[in-house]
Amino acid sequence: MTILLDLVSWTFLVLGTLAGIIGAVGLFRFPDFYSRVHAAGVTDTLCAGLVLLGLMLQAGLTLISVKLMLILVFLWLTSPVASHSLVQAALHSRLKSWRRNGEGE
């Protein structure tokens, strides 16, 4: 049973780290600021969620798990607000966006 729990927790941790690395690669691959926000969103939601969930499984039903859960809730409540205000500020400064057919909008 503990072996199984460890395996699930390790899977979460490894998948979360991979999601983080993929999101960071997306930061360099995407053409403009507006699409990079989506790549950063991957690391903010899936990577953070999986890593913290994996750590929670390691800790079991303790106060540590409660604190990890609180960190997850804070991250998932604040990260959309941060990306929203970033994009809004960029749009207000009339930052150009990349279009597929090759012309800016």
Binding site: H38, A39, G41, L46, P80, S83, H84, V87
Partner: peptide, 12 residues
């Protein structure tokens, strides 16, 4: 907030 939290869409 839900729109922004799902990657691929950002509410402005």
């Amino acid at each position: 907030n839900s729109i922004t939290l799902t990657p691929g869409t950002v509410a402005i």
